[in-house]
Amino acid sequence: MDDHPPAIHCQQLDFVYPNGVQALSSVNLVIEPGEYIAFVGQNGSGKTSLVKHFNGLLKPTRGSVRIFGEDSSDKKVSYLSRKVGYVFQNPDDMLFCTSVQEEIAYGPRLLGMDHTEINQKVEHILLELGLDEHRETHPFALSLGDRQRLAVACALSLDPDVFVFDEPTTGQDYFGGKSIMNLIDQLHAKDKTIVIITHDMPLVAEHAHRVVVMSGGQIAMDGSPAQVFSQPEKLHQLSLRSPQVTQLAYEMGFTEQAILGVPEMVEWLSRSYLSADTTNPGSQP
């Protein structure tokens, strides 16, 4: 177990804000390396408070959080950031340098890397994230999408194994959101552990491999998207809704397993209604 500790391990985690608001109560959670996990829930359900424990921004009031086996309570955020990168919702909150490449080099410089190593790293990240043509650009002159890529680049420059994204698609247009999700998928393909917070259920259905539903500071549901979205009544109680296509399939009577995307829906429809060898699976509309 100690040879391969989980990426994140929360045990009986309680968190109470200084103003007395209890944000988390008795959360138990294990995230293994390489997972792609989405946290959903109403505003105030505790999802942000929970993920802020993953890199030590918040420390447990009671219970413990272990990050790759290390207890977070006596570790600094600057240290834990090398293991868990956190990309904030608003990229502008993370940026303060005068050019894109300086911005990327900032973190490694603080870690005391040597000059050539930093340059190589910056080059590599610029190319990887498609920011190389903007290397001299002022961060604030970039488009929102590129600023967000830059915020990811800043997290990436510290070489973490886990990435936390707080509402990565909020405020983005369709293509902007698509592009950032592709980037996240790429990171996942490189064996990075991905944690996202979002309100966008189709996004969860399309990308995540595991969904954790938070409610009132506790984990209300935890499972694959198919498992979670196949319980619409329970989701409804938590003021959440499955993706529309899932709801549609459910309403049409396909209740045994959640349909997560349009291709699956099409496949099911063609199987149920167009091919001759199946019986009618549900009530006719």
Binding site: N55, G85, Y86, F88, M94, G107, A155
Partner: peptide, 18 residues
């Protein structure tokens, strides 16, 4: 609260305040 969020974001970039 904006300032607090920025400070957290800076911590995540390796800055230490403490």
């Amino acid at each position: 609260s904006h300032a607090a969020i920025i400070q957290q974001a800076q911590l995540c970039r390796g800055i230490t305040y403490d």
